[in-house]
Design a protein around this nucleic acid. Structure first.
Length: 440
DNA sequence: AAAAAAT
């Protein structure tokens, strides 16, 4: 086997459906990459700009290369071509990387972590932080899949509800977790010795270091790490002030930007529905429910309260929906996201907890029941891009529907439209034929 | 406002 010379897919061994979908993703990102500009800023400008066209060139451990191919990857995506040589260099380099949804960020940093693990050392060597419980579970699955040919490799989840006995020490090689739990495990509870961490990954890095986000906890964790610990920051979005802060807190960072976020928007058709109240939005949503359930859909609300209200109202109307928000206990959250992944639930009503990173292939429609706004009521462009980025995956055409219920929210929508310089057209929810045509 | 903690 091996990547061969040609396009991804030729001569590769594809074992199952999951592997096939990952392959599809890779094919798509290669196509998209033809029009994308990659910008690489190396720390040492004298060293040659260095990218790889195959995984072999990286001299990975055989069991890791086997894991990469078993997942259906046969050649690196654009971000991986540039990021992997930097991350695997000796000595390890720090990296801040920005590239859109579905371009292979997760696989890139998982590969970097796995290549640093020494299984004989029974303590955490790599630490990855995720902004939510659900994303930590998802990334953990990728680590387990890609590392499945290391029989000794162990992964620990530092997430809510995962309780350990006092005085216990984590012996697992990689820890994936959410900020609060990881901070406790590193400091107060001393389950992890942070001084022995070699690779530190911030997934959805912008929200992990934003003042409004998890900055305090992330930075407190970072300060406990050894000085030579490799730091890897990945996200699809970095708002200007956060980008500056990232460069300040990461020592000697290399920078990779996959430009043109409009690419994401080109595969997703955006519409808005004009209403005058929350109840009208609810009615409009009921009108299009049939059209959006042909595949899977995610409906975003601004608050937990609205989400649970909406899920209950939709149920009363006889529409089957699932609800996922941070007010639920983690066992429930794990069960709901699993049912949604399996396709047992077609519609997920949720909050920003699911705005980022969640990768469910069959999602073809995203509905913003409430537009994303920050705490000051200004448009939250980053969250908008992340939310609608839950669809339009695998080269399929995605659909985003924004529900507007006032002059104020129309103004928010106009500002989002201007920010991305991409037309958001009006949709008439009485015209079901039109909607079905768009949704498919 | 949501998320994030054995508090």
């Amino acid at each position: 086997m091996g990547p061969g010379g040609g396009r991804a897919g030729s001569g590769s061994r594809v074992e199952d459906r999951a592997a096939q979908s990952l392959l599809n993703k890779l094919i798509r990102s290669n196509l998209v990459d033809n029009t994308n500009q990659v910008e690489v800023l190396q720390r040492d400008p004298n060293s040659p700009l260095y990218s790889v066209k195959s995984f072999e060139e990286l001299r990975l451990k055989p069991q890791l290369l086997q894991g990469v191919y078993a997942m259906g990857f046969n050649r690196p995506s654009k971000i991986q071509e540039n990021a992997l040589p930097l991350m695997l260099a000796e000595p390890p380099q720090n990296l801040i990387a920005q590239s859109q949804s579905g371009t292979g960020k997760t696989a890139a940093f998982v590969l970097a972590m796995l290549s640093q693990v020494e299984p004989a050392n029974r303590h955490p060597q790599c630490l990855c932080l995720s902004p939510t419980y659900e994303l930590a579970l998802q990334t953990g699955k990728v680590i387990e899949q890609m590392g499945k040919f290391y029989p000794e490799l162990k992964l620990a989840y530092a997430v809510r509800g995962n309780k350990l006995e006092r005085g216990q020490k984590i012996s697992e090689h990689i820890v994936i977790g959410t900020p609060g739990t990881v901070l406790d495990w590193c400091s107060k509870l001393k389950f992890i010795d942070p001084k022995k961490i070699k690779v530190f990954v911030l997934d959805e890095a912008d929200v992990m270091i934003a003042t409004q986000g998890h900055q305090d906890q992330s930075i407190r964790i970072q300060r406990m790490l050894p000085r030579n610990c490799q730091m890897l920051l990945f996200s699809a979005t970095f708002e200007d002030s956060v980008w500056k802060f990232a460069q300040k807190v990461v020592p000697d960072p290399n920078i990779i930007k996959l430009k043109r976020e409009e690419e994401t928007l080109d595969t997703i058709k955006q519409y808005y529905v004009l209403c005058n109240s929350r109840d009208e939005k609810f009615q409009a949503l009921c009108n299009i429910y049939g059209a959006i359930t042909i595949a899977q859909a995610m409906i975003f609300c601004h608050t937990r309260k609205t989400a649970s209200w909406l899920a209950a109202e939709l149920s009363k109307e006889g529409h089957q929906v699932a609800l996922l928000s941070g007010e639920m206990v983690v066992e429930q959250r794990a069960a709901v996201i699993e049912r949604f992944r399996e396709g047992k639930e077609k519609v997920l009503v949720t909050t920003n907890v699911c705005a980022r990173g969640i990768d469910v292939e069959q999602v073809s429609v995203v509905i913003n029941f409430d537009l994303p706004v920050d705490k000051d009521g200004n448009p939250d462009n980053e969250t908008y891009l992340h939310r609608i980025g839950r669809t339009g995956r695998f080269g399929k055409r995605g659909l985003a529907v924004n529900m507007v219920d006032s002059k104020h929210s129309m103004n928010i929508l106009n500002r989002i439209q201007e920010h991305f310089n991409k037309k958001i057209e009006r949709l008439d929810t009485d015209d079901l034929d039109e909607i079905e045509k768009i949704a498919n």
